[in-house]
Amino acid sequence: MEEDDEIEILLVEDNPYDAELALRAFKKNNIYNPIKVLDDGEEALDFIFCRGEYNERGMCKKIKVILLDLKLPKINGLEVLKAIKTDPVTKKIPVVMLTSSKEESDIVESYNLGANSYIVKPVDFNKFVEAVRDLGLYWLLLNQV
């Protein structure tokens, strides 16, 4: 599991199609950073905090951004966000929330818990790509320079 230590982008998304579309979007925008896709909240927390299955992983060495869906099995996105942002080590990692609606309460709650940004997952693929590109420019490409 050595490659796990190299992960720079963590995508937590239970819907495989959405995940695939996201990866395709990254690719289309020439983002080739190592990406890990996880499909439930519990596994995401294990990965981030090097627990359970991932206990041999070095503590989140290189993660540059976490893309976190709000609605996740087992532990939902907001809870995962809360755990990340209350830990002194992980709280500096940028977290972008992925949501399928502009449901105001979710967004407000996310920001309250320390989310750095959010993306409404549009069915319009072009718009989604645009959003990810913006994010890539700001959070990944910028950091690489």
């Binding site: 819907n15 199609y17 959405d18 579309l21 395709r24 609605k71 399928s100 609606s101 449901e103 997952k121 549009p122 069915v123 319009d124 693929f125 989604f128």
Partner: peptide, 21 residues
Amino acid sequence: AYSVSHDLRAPLRAIDAYSQI
């Protein structure tokens, strides 16, 4: 309503996106 917005729209999104692909 929430799940409608999430769960119902997700497959739609997929249908649309994959059709486009």
